[in-house]
Design a protein around this nucleic acid. Sequence first.
DNA 1: GAGTGGTCTAGACCACGCG
DNA 2: GCGTGGTCTAGACCACTCA
Lengths: 253, 253
Amino acid sequence: MGTTQLEAVPEPKYWHLRTVLTEALDSEFAVGEILPNERDLAARFGVARATLRQALEQLELEGRLQRRRGVGTTVAPPRVGVAVGTEQHAWPGAAGDVWQAADCVLAVPPATVAAALETGVDTPVLTVRRSRVSHGQPVAAELLYVPEASVPDLSGIDAPSGAARARAVLRALQRLELESRDSAVELGSARADDAKELDRLPGAPVLVVTTRFLADGRTAALSVATYRADTCRLTFGDAGGVEIHQDPERAAS
Amino acid sequence: MGTTQLEAVPEPKYWHLRTVLTEALDSEFAVGEILPNERDLAARFGVARATLRQALEQLELEGRLQRRRGVGTTVAPPRVGVAVGTEQHAWPGAAGDVWQAADCVLAVPPATVAAALETGVDTPVLTVRRSRVSHGQPVAAELLYVPEASVPDLSGIDAPSGAARARAVLRALQRLELESRDSAVELGSARADDAKELDRLPGAPVLVVTTRFLADGRTAALSVATYRADTCRLTFGDAGGVEIHQDPERAAS
DNA sequence: GAGTGGTCTAGACCACGCG
DNA sequence: GCGTGGTCTAGACCACTCA
């Protein structure tokens, strides 16, 4: 027979903390409210600061908290839905596009991009930098790679770089017939430059959306867009997406 | 004029470590190879184990490493692409579906799900559990919520629960006319039950895909699918997605 | 039982935002 | 200058896998 096991699977402290804090956030805190600082919270729960931080990291990952150095930890608003898969058959920069073209240079892309574009590994391609703002907050940074071969009628434009050239490249793309586009979403961590643009620290979790634009039977452009994973919910499909985020630690049985 | 600033922004040790390790992985290690253990690695780089672990965590998040307690740290294979947005106008369980129905119970769903289904907060709905395997590895766990009102002709089926009932529910859905579906992708952390099914620890990063199925002008079913973020690349759109993952710490200018 | 990664502690100092 | 979160250390013990 043996004794009944009550605490058969003692969960880690940080995980239990996460649960407790989640419930507290749901019931006792308003969006934007400032939490006690980490040292106080750790003392209150009787754990080391590192352990408390592990719980806070989880909650930040889940979009429940926002931490800013020198300021404090605040309760985050619900994630904003950002449309990614609508306008299924439009080039970047088409009417109604929510992106802001920032710059355009001619540069050798990363090897993985060169492979997808089927250009040589040392062939420079037009590289357009764009950014996306939603509700006053930067939510995404994009690099759009366009082989010069895709926009032959661009040659002769004077501006060697800058926002004007970026817009010219986008306009040139509109003149092509878009066959199809497909995307992939994966988790990544923000590189230094993206992190700066997204107002985060390097290594912050991001959702990387890679989109390939097909025209004339080949990849005419490739977009690598980096979204803040803590604040964004990417929506695809016919309507605006579903207003749900996962319920913490609650099974359905 | 003042002195030139050489090390103006000294990057954190763990970030530098991540970069060094990434390069080592690219050049000196094969997929599946086992890395030295954490204590040795930390000593080799002259840092505390916690600092080394911070770098390894980043790399695991990026899908470059796989760590298993009691075993060791191995070099991960490239992420597998899993199609999410294809068969745009099909119900779950349609022909060619890659999911494995496991169970079906009648239970009260989380409040957020009840809201999306427009059922009462205390109304039980049919809850189908399915799992998805790719390349011999579990990649996703799904909960499919189906209000009983969506499948009225199901009443009378005897099996109160189990895989048989799950399949019956899916078959009943096929008989409805699907108007449209839309999805959203966001970052989450695995709850205990999902973590177990995905062979990960609780809190592991996951990509949560929420899909709403519309029929007869209302939400006939709601799917919440949890994908392993470390091993999966979710693909949407016409073709199979793009075989790219972001180049570590390399700007395009 | 030996060896691995996972958790936790109690400190220290640093970088940043703001008054 | 003060308070915040971010980084880092040097330990300890635990949970797990496998020979």
